[in-house]
């Protein structure tokens, strides 16, 4: 099936099998390998992207369902060399170890902050509970998100 999607600000026309998952379209056809696969039950969130600004697990959708919609992947979050404030905060607060869950975690966090500029710790814990991290115990991820939210409130970046 022919689809037309906007990915990270770029229009893409593609011919995809109806059964192809959105995550495989992103990774295998568009070669945007920052979006990861960590499970087969939509539990881990490593494949999270923004679809029209809303966080979705790209393993739960077919590529054809993204027709005429806007997708933002981790590669589209930074502006060239300049990191998104969440990306900087994850580095500064040690919000990652192996790095595998990180892109999905950051995309979910971006969506969380777009809905709630100053979430409490509990709101962050609930907000990222669709994303699993096996390395950090989440404390440093929560600090990273808090830092990114206070950076914005403080008017930086």
């Amino acid at each position: 099936m022919k689809i037309s999607v906007n990915v990270n600000g770029r229009n893409v026309d593609a011919d995809v099998e109806p059964r192809k998952l959105l995550v495989d379209f992103i990774r295998d056809d568009l070669h945007l390998t920052g979006t990861h696969v960590g499970c087969d039950t939509s539990s881990c969130g490593a494949c999270t992207v923004l679809l029209d600004g809303v966080a979705v697990k790209s393993c739960t959708m077919f590529a054809v369902q993204a027709n005429n919609r806007n997708i933002t992947t981790i590669e589209g979050l930074s502006k060239g060399d300049e990191l998104h404030r969440l990306q900087s905060a994850f580095i500064e607060e040690g919000g990652l170890q192996c790095g595998y869950c990180t892109p999905g975690m950051i995309m979910t966090s971006a969506w969380l902050l777009s809905n709630n500029a100053a979430p409490t710790e509990e709101e962050i814990r609930n907000g990222i509970s669709g994303n699993l991290c096996r390395c950090t115990g989440y404390d440093s991820i929560i600090r990273s998100i808090q830092k990114a939210s206070s950076d914005r409130r403080g008017g930086r970046k």
Binding site: T33, I74, E75, I91
Partner: peptide
Amino acid sequence: MEATERFVRGKGRYVGDIEL
């Protein structure tokens, strides 16, 4: 680029990302 920066940018090179 530092590993942590690669990872937050989605520029990690895990085995599934390597294409031949």
